[in-house]
Nucleic acid binder design. Structure first.
Length: 214
DNA sequence: ATCCCGAGGG
DNA sequence: CCCTCTGGAT
C-alpha cells in the first residue's frame, strides 16, 4: 500500500473514531418531512432544526397540509431556523409540487428533486443518502474548504470538488464524510483561524490555503 | 463586524 | 456573477 493511500486511511479512520460512522437522522415519519428537515438545515444548526420539527410535524402530517397552509402560518413553526421566511415560502411551494406534480410522493431521482422549490444539489444529495442510503458526496461550505486544505481537491466550485472526492474517497465513506467534516469544520477546521493545534488530522494535513492559487 | 451545515432571483 | 434572506455565535 503506497504512502498516500495509507495517509488517507489514517484520516478516514480518525474521523470515524472521533465523529462516528453514522449521524442520527432528523425526526420524521413521512418522506416529505425528511426532505423538509434537510431544507431547514441550510445555514442552520441541527439544534435549531430539532427545535422546530416536533411542532411543525404535529401540525402538518401530509405534504398536502403544508401546501394548503398560509406562508405566515408555516413561518410560525420554523422561526428557530435561519432564513425562515424563504424556507416557509419554498416549503409551501415544494409541498404543493409534491402533491400536484409528483402524485403526493417525494421523487427519488436527483433530476426530479432539483425541480422542487428550495431543493438544490446539496439538499437533494443528502436526501437520497438519508432516505435510501444512496452513496453521494455532499459538498457544502465545510466539505469544500476542508477538502482543499487536505489536498483532496483543487476544484473551484462544489460540483468540481464533488467529482474529485468521488475519485479520492472509498464509496462506503461518501455518506459520512459530509457530517464528519461539518463537525470538524465547526469546532476546529474553521474558515478563518483554524485551530490546527487541536486537530486530530494535523499530522497528515498539508494545510493548503483553501483560497490559495497554486 | 463577520460568518454561517444554500438556494432563488436579478 | 452578485445580492438577499435570519438570528445567533464569535
Amino acid at each position: 500500500m503506497d504512502v498516500q493511500k495509507k495517509k488517507l486511511d489514517s484520516i478516514l479512520k480518525t474521523l470515524d473514531q472521533r465523529y462516528g460512522t453514522e449521524k442520527e437522522g432528523f425526526l420524521h415519519e413521512e418522506e416529505w418531512q425528511l426532505l423538509a428537515a434537510i431544507m431547514l438545515s441550510a445555514q442552520s444548526t441541527d439544534k435549531q432544526v430539532d427545535e422546530a420539527l416536533p411542532g411543525l410535524f404535529s401540525r402538518f402530517k401530509k405534504a398536502e397540509d403544508v401546501a394548503e397552509a398560509s406562508q405566515e402560518e408555516i413561518e410560525g413553526y420554523i422561526r428557530s431556523v435561519g432564513l425562515y421566511k424563504n424556507k416557509a415560502k419554498n416549503l409551501k411551494k415544494c409541498c404543493s409540487q409534491i402533491v400536484h406534480e409528483f402524485g403526493g410522493q417525494v421523487p427519488d431521482s436527483i433530476g426530479e428533486l432539483l425541480k422542487l422549490a428550495g431543493v438544490g444539489r446539496k439538499t437533494a444529495t443528502l436526501y437520497l443518502a438519508d432516505a435510501y442510503g444512496i452513496p453521494g458526496v455532499t459538498v457544502d461550505t465545510h466539505v469544500f474548504r476542508i477538502s482543499r486544505r487536505l489536498g483532496w481537491a483543487k476544484g473551484k466550485n462544489p460540483a468540481e470538488v464533488e467529482l474529485e472526492l468521488q475519485k479520492v474517497l472509498p464509496t462506503d465513506h461518501w455518506n459520512r464524510i459530509n457530517f464528519q467534516l461539518i463537525y470538524l469544520g465547526r469546532e476546529i477546521c474553521t474558515s478563518r483561524k483554524a485551530k490546527c493545534e487541536l486537530c486530530p488530522l494535523a499530522e497528515w494535513c498539508p494545510k493548503i490555503d483553501p483560497q490559495g492559487t497554486p
